[in-house]
Design a protein around this nucleic acid. Structure first.
Length: 400
DNA sequence: TCTGGGGTCCTAGGACCC
DNA sequence: TCTGGGGTCCTAGGACCC
C-alpha cells in the first residue's frame, strides 16, 4: 500500500516572550521594543539575573538568551529591559495554539511557544508553502506577533526549517533539500547537538551536519553513546519517524530550585530555602493528584558543580513534612556545612496517582496534623492565586 | 563584579535475586 | 568456597531542550 509522504509544520514564535510583551506595550501606546535592542529578564538589580528573551536588534549586537543581564548592559547601556508577564504570555500562547489547531487537530505542543502540526491530510506538497504562509499571516494579523513556520516531511526537518532566517518567514526542508540546505550548516545547528557534543565532534574533524551524516556509525559510537550516536546519525541524514503526539504526556517529575543572591553558608538560610522549595513541589503534586515515591535534593557550589542525592520513601507521599524531612536528612549527608552554596533544589519522582496508593494502617499519628497543615497551605495559595488573577483580569483591557 | 528555572532521557555501576 | 549469566531496581551524574 502506498502511503502519502508526511507533511509536518513546525510553528515557532519569534523571540516569544519579547514579542508578547511588545504586543501589550504597543497596545498601551508605548514604542515597539522589537525594533530596538531589548530583553525580557528577571530583576535587573539582581546580579544573578539572566536574559530570558532578546529582540533581534539585541541578538545582532551579541546579546543572547541566558547571558547575565549585567553583561548585556555592559554590551549595550541603552538596552531596554522589561520584566516577564506570565499570565499574558499564557494567553498569547493559547491564542497562537488555537489558530494552529484550526489548521490541523493533529497538534503537539512542544513548549509554550512552539508546536508541530501534521498537515499530511490537509494540504499537498505543492500547496504546503501557501498554506503555511496563510497560517503565519493569520497569526500575525490577528494576534500581533510573528512566527516562523518550518515545513518538512518529518518533525526534525520542520523544526530545523523554522530555525532558518527569521522573523515572519516560511521555509521548507524536504528530504531532497537536505544536502543543499542542511548539510552545509555547522554541526551545532542540529537538534540534540549541544555544547559538549559539538566540542567532541569538532575535535574529531566533524564540523558540519553533512560531515556527521557521512561518518561511519562505528566511529560515531566511540565519540558519543551508542543510542545517541544512532539518533544523531539518523537526524543528520534528515530521517525521523517520530509521530506528532497529540496526547499531553503526564509529568514524570517535579522540582524547584532557588539560587541565592549571594552564596549562602548559614544552615538556617539554607534550611529556609529547602523548606520553601519543599512547599512548592509538594503543593504541585497535590494539585495534580500525584504522590511521589522518590525524593531528591541537589546543591550547586559556586563553581557550578552539582551534587545530588536521591532516596525512596517508604510510602508514596504528597505530605510536605515527609518530603522536607527526607530532604533535610539527605542535605546533611551531602553538604559539609562549611562550603558556601549557590543553589539548593528539591525534586520528586516515581509518581503514582493518589487513588492508586494503598493507605497504610499504621500511619504516624502526626500525619493527620501534617495533612491539615498542607490543606491550609494549599488554601492560602489558592486564595493568593485567585487574587492575582482577579487583579490581572481587572487590569487587562483586551485579550489577544 | 558571569551564568535562572524546570523538565526529559541516557549511562554506568552496584545490589540483589534466580 | 568459587564460578557464570541474566534481569531488575536503585543511585549518581551528565547531556540536551525551552
Amino acid at each position: 500500500m502506498l502511503t502519502r509522504p508526511r507533511i509536518i509544520f513546525h510553528i515557532d514564535v519569534n523571540s516569544a516572550f519579547l514579542s508578547w510583551s511588545a504586543v501589550k506595550m504597543v497596545r498601551e501606546g508605548q514604542p515597539d521594543i522589537r525594533l530596538v535592542p531589548s530583553v525580557v529578564s528577571g530583576d535587573p538589580s539582581d546580579r544573578r539575573s539572566i536574559v530570558t528573551a532578546a529582540s533581534i536588534p539585541a541578538k545582532k549586537i551579541g546579546i543572547k538568551v541566558a547571558t547575565p543581564v549585567s553583561m548585556a548592559l555592559r554590551t549595550c547601556p541603552q538596552l531596554v529591559i522589561v520584566r516577564g508577564d506570565w499570565p499574558w504570555y499564557k494567553q498569547c500562547s493559547e491564542g497562537f495554539i488555537a489558530i494552529c489547531r484550526s489548521y490541523s487537530p493533529v497538534l503537539q505542543q512542544f513548549s509554550i511557544d512552539e508546536c508541530f502540526i501534521d498537515m499530511t491530510l490537509r494540504c499537498s506538497p505543492d500547496d504546503a508553502v501557501q498554506t503555511a504562509t496563510r497560517l503565519k499571516d493569520e497569526i500575525r494579523d490577528r494576534l500581533g506577533f510573528t512566527v516562523n513556520v518550518g515545513v518538512g516531511s518529518n518533525k526534525l526537518l520542520a523544526k530545523m526549517a523554522s530555525d532558518f532566517e527569521k522573523p515572519d518567514k516560511v521555509h521548507t526542508l524536504w528530504g531532497s533539500e537536505v544536502p543543499a540546505k542542511m548539510w552545509p550548516l555547522p554541526v551545532r545547528d542540529l537538534l540534540w547537538v549541544g555544547r559538549k557534543t559539538e566540542e567532541r565532534l569538532v575535535a574529531n574533524g566533524i564540523k558540519t551536519i553533512g560531515a556527521l551524516a557521512r561518518i561511519g556509525m562505528g566511529t560515531l559510537s566511540q565519540l558519543v553513546g551508542g543510542k545517541f550516536a544512532q539518533q544523531l546519525h539518523e537526524n543528520a541524514n534528515g530521517r525521523d519517524d517520530s509521530p506528532v503526539e497529540t496526547e499531553v504526556a503526564e509529568a514524570k517529575s517535579y522540582s524547584a530550585e532557588r539560587t541565592f543572591k549571594e552564596d549562602l553558608l548559614d544552615p538556617k538560610d539554607i534550611d529556609r530555602a529547602l523548606f520553601n522549595v519543599a512547599c512548592i513541589v509538594a503543593h504541585r503534586i497535590r494539585r495534580d493528584a500525584f504522590r511521589a515515591s522518590s525524593v531528591s535534593i541537589f546543591i550547586k557550589y559556586k563553581d557550578f558543580s552539582v551534587v545530588q542525592k536521591q532516596r525512596q520513601v517508604e510510602q508514596p507521599t504528597d505530605v510536605t513534612a515527609v518530603i522536607l524531612n527526607e530532604a533535610r536528612h539527605m542535605l546533611a549527608e551531602v553538604w559539609d556545612g562549611v562550603t558556601p552554596l549557590r543553589q539548593v533544589g528539591l525534586g520528586v519522582s516515581k509518581l503514582t496517582h493518589e487513588s492508586a496508593v494503598q493507605m497504610s494502617l499504621f500511619e504516624d499519628p502526626k500525619m493527620e496534623y501534617y495533612r491539615e497543615w498542607d490543606r491550609q497551605y494549599d488554601e492560602r495559595r489558592a486564595r493568593a492565586e485567585d487574587a492575582r488573577l482577579l487583579a490581572y483580569e481587572r487590569k487587562k483591557t483586551e485579550t489577544p
